[in-house]
Design a binder for these strands. Structure first.
Lengths: 124, 124
DNA sequence: CCTCTGTTATATAAATTCTATAACAGCAAG
DNA sequence: CTTGCTGTTATAGAATTTATATAACAGAGG
């Protein structure tokens, strides 16, 4: 799976990494049990510092997407704290949909976008 | 309309303000032509600095939610750059739905959340 | 004239982000 | 046992962002 940093983005590097990996899991590019590159490897490949990668991995662990084994490295391992996840998503959706509504994007158009994106996800 | 700052949140103050105002527009608490409090007034009411409020208002202007009149203050005035808005929302949804999919939240459950939130919006 | 608007300019403190070097313990393979 | 790979921790520094503080300005209006 290809991971890369947009050095012109205003998103923090470790957030970019986190997001790409979460998307990778959703699209089944990364499957349960797969191991991520070591922090040093990935850091060298994408051209950033080791600690920045480590920060992304720690965040992924904290959010329940990977488990970290000191010898194997970071392993994809989803914990299903569905309630907390739904609460967080509802908070974020509230702001996102407010923006959409203000820009005259209809409920139907949102549903279409959801379906189109979800078509690539949910292979689990 | 009540605006308040969560001083324990990890979200920047000016982002909190922006989000609450956008939600206010979506819920019709704020309508086209309404004026927001002056930067100094709002700053005093919510207990933060004038410049932080000004930053939020500038962001709202830049994103096309208000127009700023030097004498009247910030006035709700939506510009309909729907294409750009949809692109941004699609980007954000991609990450949000990836998280959801990883946590076994179904497409149907997302649709339900959308409908529930959108019930309060779209009065425009 | 006085007061209100947003805006601009500086300055400062605190927090976050990213990098850099270095070292440590755990484990596996040669 | 040594070598090399993990993640982890500690420390330090630079750059950026966030928030505050004071001050001043032009424009509009009572």
């Amino acid at each position: 799976m290809v991971i890369e940093i947009d050095f012109n983005s205003d998103e923090a590097f470790y957030v970019q990494l986190r997001n790409q990996i979460v998307i990778g899991i959703a699209t089944s590019d990364l499957k349960e049990g797969d191991t991520l590159p070591s922090v040093r490897q990935l850091a060298e490949v994408v051209g950033i510092n080791m600690h920045t990668v480590n920060k992304a991995y720690s965040l992924l662990r904290q959010e329940g997407f990977v488990q970290v084994d000191r010898r194997k490295g970071a392993v994809i391992a989803l914990d299903m704290d569905k309630i907390r996840a739904m609460e967080e998503i509802q908070r974020e959706l509230k702001v996102l949909l407010a923006k959409a509504s203000c820009k005259s994007i209809s409920r139907a158009e949102i549903h279409e976008m959801i379906d189109e994106i979800y078509r690539d996800y949910g292979g689990r």
